[in-house]
């Protein structure tokens, strides 16, 4: 178990050793976005911009235009609050800026709704040139951060505050755009009751749900969907063809994120497979992450229900 923000902190410090062009910018949340190790090892390449995210993002664009590879970090909600700066300084200018938004979704728990990033993917998905990624565990975070540093162009990486289980073993290789099967029920290879697409904080509940349903005789597959944009349509359509239904579950607004991206693929292909989208439909509240997932419809029980309940024709 490790929070993906912690995995990011380790990854960026290690990458800093290899690539002197990497710089990190913070807006007084480095202690929470886990840039401390980088700052300690490379103080000259770490810039503290204070509680002024727009200026941080703009400064990162300027650094990128001069050959640096800037990683800007803050809570997802505070980065996306500066959408206009991201739109022009990062996306329109196509600057090589890596935006790292931590504290994704309801899963942050006690800090409450004003700190929960629930709209970041929806807002950013409408911007051209920006790649949107949400790693599912520590290993995938390490690979995605390394890829982002090499990739030329704007990237947004969405990370959890809370710990998430390791779903990948050592041999795993992340691939841009692709779905990553993380659970397949024993014996089944052809057709499934449901395919669940999850990511980040919702993966654990999705796998738990599939295991519980397996005991009840339902075959449910779980895919980790680490790429929100560009999402490979082939994998989504394959999953749809082989399943009675698709279920997307995300710790993000049910509008604009993974579920919407999947719906666009399905609608475009004219496939009859129904899609049930689970996600936030309102602002959250304070509580434990688990309590919030239960109250706001993202728990294992909710996912199980979405996999087997009758769909009115």
């Amino acid at each position: 178990m490790k929070a993906t923000r912690d995995a990011f902190g380790e990854a960026i410090a290690a990458l800093g050793e290899k690539n002197p062009r990497i710089v990190v910018l913070d807006a007084d949340l480095g202690k929470s976005t886990m840039t401390g190790a980088f700052m300690k090892r490379f103080p000259e390449r770490h810039f503290e911009l204070g509680i002024a995210e727009s200026n941080m993002i703009g400064a990162a664009a300027g650094l990128a235009l001069c050959g640096k590879i800037p990683f800007v970090t803050s809570f997802a909600c505070f980065l996306i609050g500066r959408l206009e700066t991201i739109r022009v300084a990062v996306a329109y200018n196509q600057t090589n800026v890596k935006m790292v938004g931590t504290h994704a979704g309801l899963g942050i728990g006690e800090d409450g709704p004003s700190q929960m990033g629930l709209e970041d993917l929806g807002a950013l998905r409408s911007l051209p040139h920006v790649t949107l990624l949400q790693p599912g565990d520590a290993e995938e975070t390490r690979q995605i951060v390394a890829w982002a540093a090499e990739h030329k162009g704007p990237v947004y990486i969405r990370l959890t505050r809370q710990k998430v289980p390791d779903v990948h073993s050592g041999g795993y290789q992340w691939k841009l755009g692709r779905l990553d099967p993380v659970f397949t029920p024993a014996g089944e290879t052809e057709h499934f009751q449901a395919s669940v697409l999850a990511g980040g904080g919702t993966l654990e509940g999705a796998i738990d749900a599939a295991k519980a349903l397996e005991k009840k005789g339902f075959s449910v597959r779980v895919f980790n969907a680490p790429t929100i944009k560009p999402l490979d349509s082939t994998d989504v359509l394959d999953a749809a063809r082989n399943s009675n239904r698709l279920v997307s579950v995300e710790d993000h607004s049910v509008v604009g994120g993974l579920g919407s991206a999947v719906a666009e693929v399905l609608a475009g292909a004219g496939l009859p497979a129904p899609l049930i989208r689970l996600g936030a439909t309102r602002f959250g509240e304070s509580g434990t992450g688990a309590e919030l997932y239960s109250k706001y419809g993202l728990s294992s029980e909710h996912i199980q229900d979405a996999c087997i309940r009758n769909i009115p024709q």
Partner: peptide, 13 residues
Amino acid sequence: QGLSMAIGMALAA
């Protein structure tokens, strides 16, 4: 927005 980007450039220099 320009001044922030100018700051990034000056930092890079």
